[in-house]
Amino acid sequence: MSRRNSITGGFFIGLTAFSAFLIIAAIIILLTVIIIGGKGTFSWEFLTTFPYDGMMKGGIFPAIYGTALLVLIMSVAAVPFGTITAIYLTEYAHEKSKLAQTIRFAVRTLATVPSIIFGLFGLGFFIKFVGGGMDTVFFGGQLKWAQPNILWASLTMALLTLPVVIVSVEEAIRTVPRELREASLALGATKWETIRRIVIPGSRSGIMTGTILAVSRGAGEVAPILFTGAAYYLATLPTSLSDQFMNLGYHIYIMATQSSNVDQTLPIQFATTMVLLLLTFTLNLTAVIIRARLRRKVK
């Protein structure tokens, strides 16, 4: 091979390697900068106290609490529905049927819909249509549910995370060997009994991965809750589903763009961002590890 050729080749391979390096470097820089900026303010107290002095001082406990509550309600809605959809796609649908393909297309579309659209939908559907309907029917037109609250925000977030659950669970169900299904059926179990006793227990790790990924996604997304329930500041924790709530991501956004004194609260902002970043990072890392193990097991 000619010398010039091998120089071009070396340059080209070097370029691809450099691109990969750039991405990894960006990840490391981002993590490092946020951690360096935040670790000075970060403490146990920061996690467990309320903000005070117009959010200039204090901790972020209500934002953590609100985020946790949000992802909890969200998971309660998204995980069962996502799991059932995955069961349909793997166990009931014929691979080539029009219906199954349409559902798959819908799931993929759902995964790419911009998150702000979910916020609009939450407003138009949950708050105005469902909430408004509830108020008219049950509360005689009194305003209770037709306004932003944690329930509507969680349900909006559940729609956003539904595809995450479906994809993970589907992948896991496909790792349950056909031989086990056959064994169960050969023992006289019906299809549903086989799914309930063999397939679902066999895909527990996938359901867990899906839940973790959904929780991570739900904890980090802000756009869907901008106008479906997140609040700038609340003196008390939410106690009912019709309460508004504080949220880590929203807190970062507000503090960084709307607060009266951005510079003075910068350490708090960094520390809050660090908490959110490390939270989602840890969750995703757990999911990656569980999935890698699962894949290795199949091989």
């Binding site: 060997p177 031989e179 064994a183 050969a186 023992l187 006289g188 063999i198």
Partner: peptide, 15 residues
């Protein structure tokens, strides 16, 4: 299938 049982080539115990 309760009346006609089956044993497979590869043993397939449930987990």
């Amino acid at each position: 299938r309760k009346k006609v049982g089956m044993v497979f080539q590869k043993s397939n115990p449930f987990a």
